[in-house]
Design a binder for these strands. Structure first.
Lengths: 215, 215
DNA sequence: CCTACCGATCGGTAGG
DNA sequence: CCTACCGATCGGTAGG
C-alpha cells in the first residue's frame, strides 16, 4: 500500500536516539506546535500518498513520535484530515478576503486572486488545499459539515469577483458553471504542475487570466 | 477505511446460495467476460472509494466471487488498476480519433469533442477515465509506462484541434498550457457534477465551448 | 474458481 | 507522550 522506508525495530528495548536527543522545546513552540507539526506533515503525506495510503505510523515517524502518540493530540485519523482541510481553508479565506477588500481595479484584482489561489494549490509546502480538493471523499459526513461552510464562503467570494468582471465587460457570463470551470482549470493544475519546471506560478497566473478574460 | 456492508460469514461451512445458483455462463460471455466484469466493478469501486480504500474482497463480492479468485484473472491489485486505466484510454482514444477524422468544421468538431470527453468523465458507468485522472499516483511506475504512451496520444489529438481552432481565429493561443487549462476545467467537473442534477452533459458541453472560445 | 490460510499491517487504546 | 498491546483486516498464495 504505502512505500515508506522501514527502519523496522519491532520491539525496541533501547530508546531510539532520534527521539531522546531532540532539542528541548522552546517556550514559543512548547505546546500547541506539536499539534501544528502533525497537521503540517499530515498534509504533505495525505497529498503524496492519499489519506488511505498514509498510516498513523507514517505521520508519527515524520514528527518523531511513536505510533500511539498522535492520538494524544487528535481523537482519530479522520480528525487529523479535518484539521488539515480547515487549516487550508481558513488561510485561503483570509488571503482571498484581503484581496477582495483591496482597491484594485477588477482586472488586476482578478489577476491577484488567481495568483493567490494558484499559490495555495501549487506552491511547495502548500498541501492543505490539494488535500481538501482531492481527499474530500475520505472525510466522514459529520466532519464534512463544518468544512462545507468554509468552502461556501470561498465560493461566494469568487462569485463576487466574477460579477464584478462582468459589470466591466471582461467576461460574458458570470454564472456558477463558469466559476466551476474556472476554478476547475486552476485546481486541476495541482495534477500536472511541477514547481521549478517550466512556467513559474506567476507566469501561469498571467496565462490563466488571459485564457479566461475576453480581453 | 472502507464502508462496505458486511455479510460476515467468516468460515462458511455451507455453500453460499448466491454463488451456486448463478445462471450458467452462456457461450457468449463464457470466458473473457469474468475478467471484463472485474474491470468494470473495480472501476466503479476505485472511483467511489479510491484504490487504497477498495479491497480485493470488495471487488470479489461485487462480482460474486470469493476473495482469492480475482487473482486467477490478475496477478495483483495493481494490475487490475492498470487494466481499468487502459480500458478507459483505449475507448476514449477510439472515440476521439473518430471525431478528429470527421469532416465537421472546427467549431462543431470541437463541440463534439468536448461533449465526448465530458461523457467519458461524467456519464454513469464511465468510471475508467476518472480513475485514470484521480488514482494515478497509486499505479506503480513500471505499470505507468504503457499508460503514459496512450495518454500522450490523447494529448496530441487535443493539441491538434486547438491548432485548428487557432487557424480560424476561434482561440488566441494554442499552447500546451491552454490545453492543460481546458482539459483541467473539463476533468475537474468529475469532482462536482452530479448526473441528473442541474445541467445535462450536453448543456455543460455547450457552456464549456462558449466559455472557452473567443466566439 | 473455491478453500483455507499466512504474515504483515492497520487504527486505536489502557495505563502509565 | 511512550510502552505494549489488541482485534480486525489486508493482499496474496498453495493446493486442489
Amino acid at each position: 500500500m504505502s512505500s515508506s522506508p522501514k527502519t523496522a525495530i519491532p520491539t525496541p528495548k533501547v530508546p531510539r536516539p532520534a527521539l531522546r536527543n531532540r532539542p528541548l522545546a522552546t517556550v514559543a513552540d512548547a505546546d500547541g506546535n506539536r499539534r501544528a507539526d502533525l497537521i503540517r506533515v499530515s498534509a504533505r503525506l495525505f497529498r503524496e500518498k492519499g489519506f488511505d495510503g498514509t498510516t498513523i505510523r507514517d505521520i508519527a515517524d515524520a514528527v518523531g513520535m511513536r505510533s500511539g502518540s498522535p492520538f494524544y493530540h487528535f481523537k482519530s485519523k479522520q480528525e487529523i484530515l479535518a484539521s488539515v482541510m480547515e487549516e487550508g481553508l481558513v488561510a485561503g479565506l483570509d488571503a482571498t478576503e484581503r484581496i477582495m477588500a483591496s482597491e484594485l481595479p477588477p482586472r488586476e484584482k482578478f489577476r491577484v486572486l488567481v495568483r493567490s489561489h494558484l499559490e495555495t494549490v501549487l506552491a511547495e509546502g502548500h498541501d492543505f488545499i490539494p488535500v481538501l480538493l482531492y481527499e474530500w471523499r475520505s472525510l466522514s459526513p459529520d466532519l464534512q459539515a463544518h468544512i462545507i461552510d468554509l468552502k461556501d464562503r470561498y465560493d461566494r467570494l469568487w462569485q463576487q469577483i466574477l460579477s464584478q468582471l462582468k459589470h466591466v465587460n471582461l467576461i460574458r457570463n458570470d454564472g456558477a458553471v463558469v466559476r466551476l470551470l474556472l476554478l476547475g482549470a486552476i485546481n486541476y493544475s495541482a495534477q500536472w504542475y511541477k514547481p521549478g519546471k517550466g512556467l513559474s506560478i506567476d507566469q501561469l497566473a498571467d496565462q490563466t487570466v488571459e485564457f479566461f478574460l475576453s480581453d
